[in-house]
């Protein structure tokens, strides 16, 4: 197993080099001169020239690439000039908010989609099955940014049952003592129930918004893989032995039907990273996604470049973890 993981990580190295190369190329096709962007349009030519030298833009392109890669390995992603901090500092301060949002939406998606998919398959062609199929169909077509705004309109503007979409906690309430950076968890750990309730109310809408697309796709996949599995001979055998239907489904069918769903869940992680950028923007969520939108609007390329690079690497690692989980779900799968 350890050997397999090492081999997979080694195979990933050329891929990572490719990812670094692409982000480097993207940074070099910028329409404007980065030195002019930093110095300002009115800056004298000698100031622009000095910045060009400082940034290494006067060097040949391959040296610029080597320099870029070297800095990346040192954890230097550059400076976000719209905040005045290093990109790494900005990421570190905003990362827990994004983690909290993403984990909550994955949790909601799994909690709803898996039972819905199972029930839809077991009770095929029932009203519940039709409802779940319509939901899956619509959920996959609705743009995230529109859904978020409609949720704000209904739950905040119209019915006023959830707080304004402004951050993670209301202004008058103190955030919980930071332990993990996740407000829900920290408030529970420190026993601050006021902060817990308020941060939960703030989290509900963005988490539902981000989870909807994933929920729809997982429910659809769970239904189709469950339908395939419950038609297999070993399920018929289990039923013939007199096993209870709930046991047949939960014990025999689910673990096998879950493998394709797990693959999809790994692939959905990419969607969640992209979705977080939009969701955080709509709900003024102080995470990395909202920070990236601010960077886009300020034409500050260093954070976008760093985010693109980190997303691709994390996405590749998540899919490796998914591959490893296959063996946990199905003991027949061995890693050699």
């Amino acid at each position: 197993m350890a050997g397999y993981i090492m081999r997979r990580l080694l195979y990933m190295i050329p891929g990572f080099i490719g990812i670094i190369l692409i982000t480097f190329v993207l940074s070099r096709v910028l329409p404007g001169d980065p030195a002019v962007m930093i110095a300002g349009e009115q800056a004298p030519p000698d100031v622009v020239a000095k910045i060009r030298v400082d940034l290494g833009l006067d060097q040949p392109i391959y040296i610029q690439f080597m320099d870029y890669a070297k800095k990346l390995f040192q954890g230097d992603f550059g400076i976000a000039w719209h905040t005045g901090h290093t990109v790494l500092q900005d990421f570190a301060s905003r990362f827990p908010a994004t983690i909290e949002l993403t984990l909550s939406s994955i949790f909601i998606a799994i909690l709803v989609a898996i039972p819905v998919g199972i029930i839809a398959a077991v009770k095929k062609e029932s009203i519940l099955d039709h409802i779940s199929r319509i939901f899956s169909l619509i959920g996959a077509c609705v743009p995230l940014f529109w859904l978020g705004l409609m949720l704000i309109f209904l739950f905040y503007s119209k019915w006023d049952i959830l707080p304004a979409p402004m951050g993670r906690i209301s202004e008058g309430i103190n955030p919980p003592t930071s332990i993990t950076g996740l407000y829900l968890l920290d408030s529970l750990l420190s026993g601050d129930m006021i902060a817990f309730k308020d941060s939960l109310m703030h989290l509900i809408l963005p988490a539902i918004c981000l989870s909807t697309g994933t929920m729809a796709i997982i429910a659809r996949m769970m239904r189709s893989s469950m339908l395939e599995v419950i038609g297999q001979d070993y399920i018929r055998t289990a039923r013939a032995k007199g096993m209870r239907e709930s046991q047949v489904i939960m014990k025999h069918a689910l673990s096998n039907a879950f493998i394709p769903t797990l693959t999809l869940l790994g692939l959905q992680f990419g969607f969640l990273i992209g979705g977080a950028v939009i969701t955080e923007t709509i709900f003024s969520w102080p995470g990395v996604g909202g920070y990236i939108t601010d960077s886009i609007l300020s034409t500050d390329y260093a954070p976008i470049q760093a985010f693109t690079l980190i997303s691709a690497i994390v996405f590749s690692l998540v899919n490796l973890i998914v591959d490893l989980l296959y063996g946990v779900l199905d003991p027949r799968i061995r890693y050699e």
């Binding site: 490719g18 990812i19 329409p31 693109t308």
Partner: peptide, 24 residues
């Protein structure tokens, strides 16, 4: 195909954002 794999390693929207941001 390895080049295609590298492109697939990027989450779609993030890659689209990075390209659009680069091009203006």
């Amino acid at each position: 195909m390895r080049c295609m794999d590298v492109l697939l390693a990027f989450p779609s929207l993030i890659l689209a954002m990075a390209i659009a941001a680069s091009l203006g």
